[in-house]
């Protein structure tokens, strides 16, 4: 009965360690990160902790970020490419509170970027760390649900099943039907799940300047891709890997060769396509680029974004 007295009398629960995790947990995660970097694409088991947000909501990414972040870091958190999605806001607030670090929405200013489902459009640079939130780290899981089996397949480098699956897609649909979480081979050895990013982002992983760390909290796995590392999307000679292509540019910034979100404007089929990477879009607009639906008044001041347009 003393714990509650501690909480209420001394406010003990309000005083967490820097970045929430205790030092022993951080050490355990740090060791796993180093092994992950040394064995690119291999999923290192780690003793994931319960976090104050639910499993499946970024606990792996949060634990990785908490283990690496220091007082001088500048943190950016995105979900679906956007800094202002509710879960990104929540995770950013968590670190602002528990680590007191500076946060930013500007990709170029961040030293650590935690992401769910996207890689920023702007090429990342040396010294930046991209931390991915991963729901199911095992690329073979949907082919073989048993951990005991998939572990053997990785050990023996036995990835035929994955190719069979992709080829069955082609036979049935004329296309590889995997559009996100598209499997990659890292440095010619491990087949790896890039997390549920659209395959549009896969080429950005290849020989990136940034260190890429992946955290899967519920599944208790950490893996990594060091900078300048070969990351090749699986494909076939007669069906080479290709990324999504959008027929029109971003309606706000006019950007091309970027990933777009479809925003439904009305119930009569009206829709617009806008950048999923909100920072990229804002930067382009600030530099004077305009898409066809961007009104001149749209980006006055700091209050700019999709919502204004979508709700008109």
């Amino acid at each position: 009965m003393t714990a509650l007295a501690d909480m209420t009398d001394t406010g003990k629960l309000a005083t967490y360690n820097f970045a929430y995790l205790d030092e022993q947990t951080k050490r355990m995660i740090r060791r796993a990160i180093l092994k992950g970097i040394a064995i690119p694409g291999y999923q290192v088991p780690f003793a994931s902790r319960e976090m104050p947000m639910p499993y499946g909501w970024g606990t792996g990414g949060v634990q990785v970020t908490a283990a690496i972040i220091g007082p001088d870091d500048v943190l950016k958190v995105i979900d679906q490419g956007a800094d202002d999605t509710t879960n990104a806001v929540s995770i950013r607030a968590f670190f602002a509170k528990t680590a007191g670090v500076e946060t930013t929405t500007a990709t170029a200013e961040a030293s650590i970027i935690q992401t769910r489902h996207r890689i920023p459009e702007m090429p990342l640079t040396e010294g930046q760390v991209l931390v991915y939130q991963v729901p199911i780290p095992e690329p073979l899981r949907f082919l073989e649900p048993r951990e005991t089996e998939t572990r053997k397949m990785h050990a023996l480098e036995e990835y035929g099943l994955m190719h069979v699956k992709l080829y069955e897609d082609i036979a049935r649909n004329g296309h590889i039907a995997t559009t996100y979480a598209y499997p990659v081979k890292v440095e010619g050895r491990y087949v790896m799940d890039p997390s549920p990013t659209p395959k549009f982002d896969n080429p950005k992983m290849h020989r990136s300047e940034a260190l890429q760390l992946f955290g899967a909290g519920r599944e208790k796995r950490i893996y990594a891709i060091p900078p300048h590392t070969e990351v090749v999307s699986l494909d076939f000679e007669d069906h080479p890997f290709e990324v999504q292509h959008f027929d029109q540019p971003c309606a706000l910034c006019g950007g091309e060769q970027v990933y777009l979100d479809e925003v439904v404007l009305d119930d009569r089929g009206g829709r617009m396509f806008v950048c999923s990477d909100t920072d990229h879009c804002e930067n382009r607009c600030a530099a004077g680029h305009r898409g066809e639906l961007a009104g001149d008044d749209l980006f006055d001041g700091k209050d700019k974004g999709v919502e204004t347009e979508a709700s008109t």
């Binding site: 499993y55 679906q80 489902h117 559009t179 549920p196 990013t197 659209p198 999504q244 479809e262």
Partner: peptide, 22 residues
């Protein structure tokens, strides 16, 4: 279990867009 089942209510529109396109 509840975390992962309930995480489906988080936005997934980027991946859905990829599926829509295909």
């Amino acid at each position: 279990a509840t975390g992962f089942v309930e995480h489906l209510k988080l936005p997934h529109y980027v991946d859905f867009q990829a599926e829509l396109d295909l």
